[in-house]
Nucleic acid binder design. Structure first.
Lengths: 226, 226, 226, 226
DNA sequence: AATGAATGAGCTTTCATTCAT
DNA sequence: GATGAATGAAAGCTCATTCAT
């Protein structure tokens, strides 16, 4: 016998959804102010609960931070997987994968990717996260090398190329604001097109409307301090 | 009568040098761990003094943070000035200026540039710093527009181009390590060459040796946690 | 359904009572050692809690100090109001009002009145407190003038008379000890009788038993040092 | 052979004068803000020297505090001695002695008398000071008793009378300002006349001009906080 | 499940004290 | 004699974490 014809999520599912919501909200704030600059009260406030309530779903602040990184890496890997399936060469795979990553990253419902801060993770917990991140970067480097081999990407130092790309993309969380003039789709496709052109073997002109219509706009900046 | 033939700096000069040293060291740590994640003990330890000693040269932690940003913007503007004088078109001006900026930023004796963290600056002090940063970004955008006009740069959204470039460059402090295989000069010129190729009107192949000799290397990563 | 037939104070009421208790205890220590000489640990120790617990009920040390002054002025005004209603002339009004004030001030459960220390209040917070105190002194001066008019008080400089009276009364917290030989009632009525005799138009002999039985006693003094 | 015909104070005398000056200035500030609320920098600033310079003349802050109390008790005893020689009965002796004490206490060049704060003196040093103060109070009580015997003072509890008197007088440092309308002489004689009237056997009307001309005036109050 | 309350550890800042110059 | 510099010990305040309700 099922209650409410399964329209209600089960207890366990609800709990899981809440943990996800906490992680998503935390990642957003961590991204803006750094994990050290963010208190659990900050996170709880945004969720409309008290700090103590968070501890039902998260072991401690470090666990929350780990969760953020894991979630981010999951999404990144998933999107990169899509790119690998859909792209026809190294460059395309990167473009598709990272565009998806970036779109989710800054999209309203998405999980903002978190920049790995040195020393922010507790003693024993950094290892697995670093391994995840290194694996992701390696996978990305592999696509760069594939692109070099298939001629879609210029001979380039793959490590440097990946760093350049990640820098440009991760930086987006610092300046992008949903209240600005650009939709997540516009911003991410224009940014990907631009950044990957740096190592494209046969760079074209930029096709995104953001580049063709060079209208001034207002990107929101830093505001004030508490 | 002069002592030591004026080889010794005067007391006031020494004091000034110490303040500079504090700011430089602080910026380095702030960059790695974020300003909230850095304690004044961290900074003092690296300088071999006690926390209290810092207070002779700095009003408080926020003042130190402000000092870091000011110093960074000074250097950035100075280097951009050099680029403007020496470059023959918009693209060259950006390349020369930002290469200098990046080289100093990661050079051992240099002043690491600090990423502006949201909410990290105290109530009244954020304004002037944000103004400085905005002015710098505007100046950079001006060079992009100049490059578009003189044909050295592709039609591109200047704001997006500047964000891309700054993201790629500021990211360098996250992964660059002086103990790694690359000198600051190598890393910065290779990175600049790569990143600016994204909007160069006539992109060439990459000339830096870093790109031609695609040797794997080990960039140091995260180490331990407190 | 009510628990314990409402015999238990609600959470909000308990919270309010705790804040009151903190203020009362703080005022006692502030009076003895001055606010600068008192640490929040001192206050917390006396209440059997930790320093951090105070911060649930008080914004900061200055807020606590302000709270003490407000509470004290409330009581002073309240008692003076009683004096004004019950006394038949200026002198009697002062005697009744200030006797009540003094009795509460040194009574065990009472709220010790706090001497306003110069510069002890933070930047913006001194104004309202000073205004309260000035208003109280003015009210007291008004009663002196009333007494002069109705013949109960000698022609005297009202300002000086009020200063004299307040000096004698506020001083009591410095020497009075509940462990001594005098009850709060004895001490306060004898002191009031004596001090107001200074400006009484027709001074009688002193009626309090404290004055008739001139027994030596031991007032406790300074004890220890940190 | 004497230098400068002894017009110059000797080295030792100069040193002694400086110590006196430090103590005098310190007492003034201690009186206003309490000893805990006063830093050695405060004292040094008022003297136009650096904090470190004080240590040539004073062992430490506690020594300075002790010095203040000793100086104050010296003056108090000296003035009381004058009263004892010149007064014809107990009341007159108190009036003359305490008027001198008060005049010096608030006079511009005088040594402000310091209120003994509980716990302000270091572990072993409180004893002698307390003994000095107790001796002084006892001496004062003796004069009250003498006055009772010779008929100049009403039967009164001597301890209470002394507390009342000292309270009224010590309070003066809280409100008296040299910039106000009253000279030290006016203020002290009017205050003494008023306060001692409380226990005078045959109280007269108040003779001081301050009492006869009941003009409003502006006594300066608390100002602001740093 | 969630909250208010309490705590201990840590951080920024101040200050008495010492020392080399 | 006096000063700038440095230090260690506190004090005010914050915050992650726990617990009773």
């Amino acid at each position: 016998m099922t209650r409410w014809a399964n329209a209600l999520p089960s207890r366990a599912e609800q709990s899981d959804m809440k943990r996800k919501a906490i992680i998503r909200e935390a990642a957003r704030v961590f991204n803006k102010r750094g994990s050290h600059g963010t208190t659990l009260d900050d996170v709880a406030d945004r969720l409309g609960v008290t700090k103590a309530a968070l501890y039902r779903y998260v072991d401690n602040k470090n666990d929350l931070l780990v969760g953020c990184h894991e979630e981010a890496m999951d999404i990144a890997n998933e999107q990169l997987g899509i790119g690998e399936r859909e792209g026809r060469n190294g460059l395309e795979k990167i473009r598709i994968g990272m565009a998806g990553y970036l779109r989710i990253m800054i999209g309203d419902m998405g999980v903002p990717v978190l920049v790995l801060e040195e020393n922010a993770l507790a003693e024993g917990t950094a290892g697995p996260i670093i391994a995840l991140r290194d694996a992701f970067e390696k996978r990305l480097r592999g696509l760069v090398e594939e692109g070099i081999r298939d001629g879609s990407i210029l001979p380039v130092n793959p490590k440097l190329a990946v760093f350049m790309l990640l820098g440009a993309l991760n930086w987006v969380t610092k300046w992008y604001s949903p209240e600005g003039a650009w939709t997540p789709e516009q911003a991410s496709s224009a940014m990907i097109e631009l950044a990957t052109r740096a190592f494209a073997a046969e760079p074209d002109a930029l096709a995104s409307e953001l580049h063709r219509s060079i209208t001034p706009f207002n990107a929101p900046r830093q505001k004030r301090k508490r």
